[in-house]
Nucleic acid binder design. Structure first.
Lengths: 345, 345
DNA sequence: CCGACGAGGCCCAAACTGGTG
DNA sequence: GCACCAGTTTGGGCCTCGTCG
């Protein structure tokens, strides 16, 4: 365990120094180390010599100088609303590993739903010459001249590929599940106005409800307001709802975190989940399966969505002139667990 | 809502173009826009002219060219084990906002506890000329020539400032709490060997236990192994423990996520928390207060720790020659909630 | 058989990226 | 105004060798 510290990591030698050592010009060395097309014109023996010396002297090209010239930074900018638990971490674990494999690093900025930051951050990142943008639950207000991939709820826009969940299917899975368990009076949670997913999810939910024959009572609809992705998001609104009305047997939440808050509010009101009220979440974050009761939820394949998003973004960066789909849809999956149960009586 | 899209964000003009427009040399313009010390030598009227034109033509200095010259990138590298729920998100929310306020962006890389990546990532980031490194639960194997701030569990090392939790106090808070509730037979969870915090926390726990008069039964000690920061981390080991022994009334967990897994394991074994077994967590992640039962836990002031870490790192970057403490300690706080209760019988 | 000329092979000079001092 | 940061890129230049008159 107590291995001696090696010498501090120091700046590598420059291309010029390497060229001098090899008695070659910087141009030649550059061609070889980059394996540029033009490298054919350089003798095989020379190439080998260069590569060997580069390895030996541990030559590493200066990324700033290179980027300055080539206008490529191998950096992408990620814009998220906030570093939420569950949702964000699962997604970004997938994004990060895909990006790193391709040799890209990424900046992360979170705008906390502040409109000025939503405007500002794309510019800030472009000033740093990111090669592309990855948006999570965030909408661009201004076209940009780098490839953009957006996860969840972006308007259709030139140059932006949207990674989307099939909302109709999501709503159908959750509502069918509740309906089959006998639930008829269901409370609904609508996401915050500024969360770009809210609108389409809500419409899908209302549409499917009508289709199945579930009547939606406006009085049983909760409208989330808090700028938060924490359990308190669902706690307050659910507590308020319960103080007004208790004539419902199920609650369909906007996300798992809110669902955890809701279940707490139900317990604090002296009721039980799923005994009195069944709760359905959304996302399937890691704690969902371990919570008491474990959470029935509509699972988003966040890992795959993150991977595809990152890979597609890189493909678009490296191949800007091809045609790309402007939307990719993913299918949700219902994870039926303990927080939903047949309606009693 | 349907505001028209503004023109795409385009590359700003260069310093040279600006200079040409003003019929001045690039040098002069550079001096003015940077408000360099030497700027005194330039007529006030000229200065004003330059600044006005810069604003008007929306001049933005090319960050790559500037960094190439100045060897400063206003970028810092953050190395974490993984993008864990709770711990990571709270910390990074604080880090991010502090960094952004100071004009810094950051790269995040997570090494997933793979030794080769722990070695590789500092070099990768230094190749990108980060101005400093922020380590979370990660140890450097090689000295580097930029300032480093480390949160949790770094060995003492030249040039590294450690942000640490007072482990003795943490252990004392948790154990005293359990002891006062009448618990004498307590099970303990030891963090993974490769998690740098594990060792010192374990030693503190053992030391305080002895001091208070709690006997530690090696058979009641759980050794975490999984490379995970998810509830399963605590679930498996707790389930195994319960299948062997049930003669304990409390369990002190390595972190909250593991505690949630443990509580689930207790429930799955037909026991109840806190009825049969009290559980104490560590960290105080967001769900802790909403879980059923809500989690008694040792709270780390992660937000403050993140803020201080980021601010100190920036101070060290901008002021490299001053002396800095090599450790800053933070005090934990006990959040007594429902998962612990007086021992019955 | 010699000299001229053309064709490649191999490498380099120099301009360029955009700003600093 | 000029050198400098550290690379990339491209249009030649020089040399060699082969061929042909």
């Amino acid at each position: 365990m107590d291995e001696p510290l090696r010498k501090p990591y120091s700046a590598p030698i420059s291309l010029k120094q390497l060229a001098e050592y090899l008695k070659l010009s910087p141009a030649t060395v550059s061609l070889v180390v980059n394996n540029a097309p033009h490298v054919r014109t350089i003798a095989k023996a020379t190439r080998a010599r260069v590569l060997e010396a580069a390895k030996e002297l541990n030559y590493r090209p200066n990324s700033l100088a290179r980027s300055l010239r080539t206008r490529q930074t191998f950096t992408i900018g990620v814009i998220v609303p906030e570093l939420s638990e569950g949702y964000f971490t699962i997604l970004m674990n997938a994004v990060e590993s895909s990006l790193l494999q391709a040799g890209y690093l990424h900046f992360v900025v979170s705008h906390q739903w502040q409109p000025d930051l939503i405007d500002e951050y794309p510019k800030l990142l472009l000033n740093r010459f990111v090669d592309g943008l990855l948006l999570v639950n965030t909408e661009l207000h201004q076209a940009v001249n780098v490839p953009v991939v957006s996860i969840s709820g972006h308007k259709k826009m030139q140059g932006v590929t949207n990674i989307l969940l099939n909302h109709d299917r999501s709503a159908m899975l959750a509502l069918k599940h509740l309906y089959d368990l006998g639930h008829r009076r269901i409370a609904f949670m609508r996401g915050q106005r500024h969360v770009s997913d809210s609108q389409s999810r809500w419409e899908s939910t209302m549409g499917r409800a009508q289709e199945i024959g579930i009547e939606v009572d406006p009085e049983l609809c909760i409208y989330l307001e808090a700028n938060s992705w924490l359990p308190e998001l669902g706690y307050g609104p659910t507590r308020d709802l319960l103080s007004r009305r208790r004539d419902f047997t199920a609650l369909f939440c906007f996300n798992d975190t809110a669902a955890l808050g809701a279940i707490r509010a139900i317990a604090d009101a002296g009721l039980s989940c799923p005994g009195d009220i069944s709760v359905v979440g959304f996302d399937d974050i890691a704690v969902a399966a371990y919570h008491l009761p474990s959470l029935t939820t509509v699972r988003q394949p966040l890992r795959q969505m993150g991977e595809i998003a990152a890979q597609l973004l890189i493909k678009r960066i490296q191949n800007p002139n091809e045609e790309y789909a402007d939307a990719i849809h993913f299918d949700p999956e219902l994870m039926a667990r303990e927080s939903t149960r047949e309606v009693s009586g």
